[in-house]
Amino acid sequence: MRYIKWVFIIVFWTIVLTFLHYTLPQKDVVRIVNTYEERQDLADWTRIFWSVPDDQSETLINRDVQFIQAIRPNGKNMVYRNEDTGWNWPPYFKFDTADLYTDANDMISTKDNPVWVSVTHYGWRNRFLSVFPNAISMKQVEGPDARVIPWVSIIILIILFAIFWAIRVRWRRFRRARIDPILQDAGETWDGVDQRYTETRGKFGRWLDSWRSKPKN
């Protein structure tokens, strides 16, 4: 029973943390090298990793998606998609895909004369599933080792923790005040029943015994 409880707790927190890691904004410092558009199939289950930018596309089975290709300071690559999130989840309310595409093209730079950019994004890059993080905004920074602090994520995590804690404290107080006494009551009642049964059984048993044939001598 204890193992089941722990498995349940671990699965629950894994789901919560995975969800937060996918949804909360992160910032990368990168150098943008190119942008491109590519037709993407939207008919399989990986549809959940693409946005729903407008009303028509919900029934489309494929459409063009904009991508931003970038190189990180350590030389490894990163590819972002550039899609409206619109009024849908996650709540970035991004409608300026075309503007961001323009900015990205404006910030394209070469290895010899690099322009470093801090790209705010959410989501994951996965090669097997062809999943790309969605770029939200970008800002030029001084250099490849510029320090970018994810204030938004920090604030959201603090607020979430505060809400979680406030509910937890109140729930524990409620349980101590209302539920534990009832359980205790039930336990005591049961003890009483148990004892009464034992006593009654004693009386009844003695009465029964009184009908049994007495050993004759």
Partner: peptide
Amino acid sequence: VILTIIYITNFVN
């Protein structure tokens, strides 16, 4: 909060 996010995402670079 939503209005602020809309403003920051779309109108602040």
